[in-house]
Design a protein around this nucleic acid. Structure first.
Lengths: 229, 229
DNA sequence: CGAATTTTTGACTTCCATCAAGTGTAGTGG
DNA sequence: CCACTACACTTGATGGAAGTCAAAAATTCG
């Protein structure tokens, strides 16, 4: 097994976990680790897709933009997620690093060949896409039917559960997104996000330090504010 | 090949198109055709999933409901789509027939066994889930960032392109959803949907007869009203 | 036909967007 | 170290798009 893979997150929870040693070596021969600053675009909407990646560290936002500039974030991906849309050569969305990010990139052709003769790999990818579909549909409920307050609480709850999946009742984290990004994720404006954060703060549901650092004393209160039964 | 399969839509565009004759026969032995009236629930949110189905005729809506009754339709499925969430034994959403519908149902275990030793079948299912994911993300942009007018136009455009994929500039169809369902799909109220339909009618973008029958003289005008490019 | 349901229309309200200052919070260089 | 700028975020005042409540009109169905 290649030594870069040994401590790699994708080797554990990611798609590489289903590959054999020789497949890992083969993929590794063509793969390429990159560090990416927050704000950098990885793939543009409508662009040709030449490479797929695994997210090794950081958070990537997937977004769609309308002709007049209105924007919607349609998904967040965390390490060790696979990044790409197999079997489509043109991207229907933009992928941009939200935080400083590290990815492991490999050419499309190499992976697609490997998919073709490794059912377990395709199964693993299918599994991720089903997970993403569940998440997208959950978010559709949030976008379509929740109030601004519930939307902001839902976002904080999402981050809280992703950063620290097995926390007890309380938890604490850095927001990976700016207010502008949060607004684009929730279908709101920056101002509304800010106002609702302030209200949640006043209601003691969260504590905020330095704008980006959030403390949740009781995750169940946050879940309730998010409108989840 | 079983004779019910011969003229079946699922045998052509659906998942059955990748099965061999003997696999079709095997699946058919356990499968069960059903006619379902519009409005009937197929699977409930939180219910155990015992069967998967192919939609042979009609339209099925997938929806999520909050504890206080707020509802969001998160997807529409048309024949010959596959209906089900493989590898999860509990449904996170409700599936309900929108129109009178015909499905071909088979036990979960039979299909899962067949998936396990037929990579082509899993590939076909993966492909549908990628398509659904693309659609869900398109819809997130609609829900989060479009105006009521654009939402209603987007919905009409969606139905128009599904009912008659290769129409020229004009087309004509029956709406498979009531105003209440359209509202739940668009994250609006019934009244707002109705008002926007009236406005689109006054702007000559659509003609409506008997509430459900819609004529689109020029699909490009509708596409523009939907805010697409 | 008449009852029930769905859809439309109207009057009014509310929530969130918009516009506009104001308040931090880095980062730079004198 | 302190101006100075640049940027991100917050707060306030106002307006408008969509929601709510209520009733009328159209359509479906027994």
């Amino acid at each position: 097994m290649p030594k870069v893979c040994r401590a790699c997150e994708a080797r554990h929870g990611g798609i590489c976990s289903v590959l054999t040693g020789s497949q890992l070596a083969e993929l590794n021969k063509h793969s390429n680790r990159k560090s990416i600053d927050g704000g950098t675009e990885l793939v543009g909407q409508g662009e040709n897709i030449g490479t797929y990646s695994n997210i090794v560290r950081g958070v990537v936002k997937l977004s769609k933009m309308m002709a007049d500039g209105r924007q919607q974030i349609v998904g967040l991906q965390f390490a060790p997620d696979f990044l790409g849309r197999p079997f489509s050569h043109e991207s229907s969305l933009t992928a941009e690093a939200a935080t400083n990010t590290e990815v492991c990139a490999f050419p499309r052709a190499v992976l697609e060949r490997m998919i073709a003769d490794t059912p377990e790999l395709e199964h693993r990818l299918y599994d991720q896409s089903l997970k993403e579909l569940d998440e997208a549909r959950d978010w559709m409920l949030t976008l379509g039917r929740k109030t601004a307050r519930e939307k902001v609480a839902s976002f904080l709850h999402l981050i809280a559960t992703h950063v620290d999946p097995d926390a007890g009742d309380g938890c604490e984290f850095e927001l990976p997104l700016s207010r502008a990004d949060i607004a684009d994720f929730l279908g709101l404006t920056i101002e509304t996000v800010s106002r609702q954060m302030t209200k949640l703060r006043k209601d003691k549901i969260i504590l905020v330090e330095n704008n980006r650092h959030v403390i949740v004393p009781d995750i169940e209160n946050l879940n309730e504010a998010a409108g989840n039964d």
